[in-house]
Amino acid sequence: MNDNVIVIADVSSSYFSVARYSGGIKYNGTVYIYCRERDILVREDWEKFYRKLPWETFITAVKTGKKPELPKKPARVKAQRKEQPDNQPSLFD
């Protein structure tokens, strides 16, 4: 288990502000990704949860320290080829 901080807030007004220009930092051996929309640094292994979950759900998960299960994508259905109508000749025959 990683005991490092998960989210660092108010990056612009702290000594972590250099992360705004480089896209993130490495602090105490842990990589953090800068998220401009909320001015936060998110630990690298939590970033996909930040991107895919609503903010309230993400913060709840951070407070507990347990990664939630991400919502599943619906299965992609392959587009079936439509048959050419009988009255329209194919250009490829």
Rank of each mutant, 00 (worst) to 15 (best):
V31G: 00
E44T: 13
I40C: 06
G23E: 07
F58M: 04
T30G: 03
R81A: 10
L91W: 12
D10S: 09
V31F: 14
D93P: 05
G29F: 12
S14A: 11
R76M: 03
Y34S: 06
R76Y: 09
I6D: 00
A9N: 12
F92K: 08
P71M: 12
F58N: 03
R36W: 10
P74F: 03
K66G: 00
P85V: 14
V42Q: 00
P85Q: 05
S12M: 07
W46M: 03
V31R: 11
I40G: 00
R36C: 10
K66I: 09
S14R: 04
G23D: 01
I40H: 02
D39K: 12
K63V: 05
R36E: 09
K52R: 14
A75E: 06
R20E: 07
R51E: 14
V42W: 00
K48F: 12
K63P: 01
F92C: 04
V31S: 13
L53C: 08
R36S: 10
V18Q: 07
Q88C: 02
E69V: 11
E83H: 01
N4F: 07
Y32N: 04
A75F: 15
R76H: 05
N2F: 11
K73E: 08
N2R: 12
K78Q: 04
A79L: 09
A61G: 03
K26M: 14
K78N: 01
R76P: 03
P54T: 12
E69M: 03
K82S: 07
D45E: 15
I40F: 11
D86N: 12
W55I: 12
F16A: 03
T60C: 08
I8V: 13
A9W: 10
F49I: 06
F16K: 05
K82V: 14
R36G: 11
R20G: 05
S13F: 10
A19K: 02
K67P: 04
V11A: 02
Q88I: 13
G24Y: 08
M1R: 10
Y15G: 01
N2T: 08
S90Y: 04
K78S: 02
K73Y: 13
P54L: 07
A61K: 04
R43V: 07
C35R: 09
P74V: 13
N28Q: 14
Y21I: 08
K73L: 09
L70T: 08
K73D: 07
R20N: 06
V11E: 00
I8Q: 02
N87W: 14
K48A: 10
S14D: 01
N28K: 14
I6A: 01
R38E: 07
P68C: 08
P71G: 03
V42F: 06
R76A: 10
